[in-house]
Simulated assay, not measured.
Amino acid sequence: MNRFIVLGHRAYTTGDFKLDDICGGAGRLDILVRCVNSAFFLSHDLRKDSEIYLVLEGGTDAPKTVRFYGPDMKYLNPDERSTASLIRNALLKKLDGKNEIRSSPGVYISRRSFEDVMKDLSDKCRFIYLREDGEDVREYEFPEEPCYILGDDRDPTKEEERIMSEYPYDKINLGPVSYHANHCMTIVLNEMDRRVTRMEG
């Protein structure tokens, strides 16, 4: 399973935003929507071995985490508006504590924070922090169960890096320049696809 944790530092945690304004009116939710699409969509197929955790830290009801899970996924389309609609529908659900509930097939919502998500995943995967000063991805040996951590249009805060430091993690960079978060995901998945293809060949 390829997992991603994306930190939405301003992303709204309530569903009272317009789907026509997910950039300015929903705390740059547009970035997270593009990350969802990068995690799952191929040209004529859907990756069933991907899972993405959107940690929403903005708005008046933070934090919340929306999880997209490939094996159960339905109703995910490549346009940003429909993906934003799935997130908004999840945010409209009534939550009980930190228990996760299903909003639609493959989409789950909870009140988990970044710290909660890290704790929950710590025994399931190897954390990998995508950062410019990390090891070159071309030299990196991918673990069997990777979980990539990245920010939206802002780097993780010092407090978020402190939370990360409580667990073992690797740090890799994807090239000589900075990329958008969703582009980083595409590059990582492409590297993994190439290696799987070489092994199978």
Rank of each mutant, 00 (worst) to 15 (best):
R194C: 06
D45R: 11
H9C: 03
D133S: 07
I109A: 01
T65P: 06
G25M: 10
N182A: 12
A84I: 08
N182R: 01
D155N: 10
H44D: 14
G70A: 11
L150A: 00
G59W: 03
S165D: 08
L174V: 10
D96K: 12
I172P: 09
D133M: 00
S50G: 00
M192R: 15
E145Q: 14
S165N: 08
F40Q: 08
D30K: 01
S85R: 07
F4K: 05
I163V: 11
S165T: 06
I172N: 09
L76A: 04
G25W: 08
P143G: 03
L7G: 04
K119N: 15
D49L: 11
K171A: 14
G201S: 11
S165G: 07
D61K: 15
D152R: 00
D16Y: 11
Y167Q: 02
I22A: 07
D153H: 10
K93G: 01
E191N: 12
M73D: 00
E160S: 03
Y179M: 13
D155F: 09
N182E: 15
P63D: 10
G134W: 02
A39C: 11
M185Y: 05
K124Q: 14
E160W: 02
L95E: 03
R102C: 09
N182P: 06
E159H: 09
S103E: 07
K94L: 05
M1A: 12
V107W: 04
E139F: 01
G201H: 08
E159D: 14
T65S: 06
E191S: 07
T60Y: 13
D96E: 13
N2H: 15
T13Y: 02
V55F: 02
K48S: 06
V66S: 06
I87K: 03
L150W: 02
A39R: 05
T13S: 01
I187P: 10
D133R: 11
E160Q: 11
L95P: 01
L121K: 11
D30V: 05
F4N: 01
V55P: 09
G106Q: 11
A84G: 11
S122N: 08
S122T: 04
D170A: 09
D20L: 14
F40Y: 07
L91W: 04
E132S: 15
R138D: 12
L32P: 00
R111E: 04
V196T: 11
L91I: 02
R198D: 06
D16T: 10
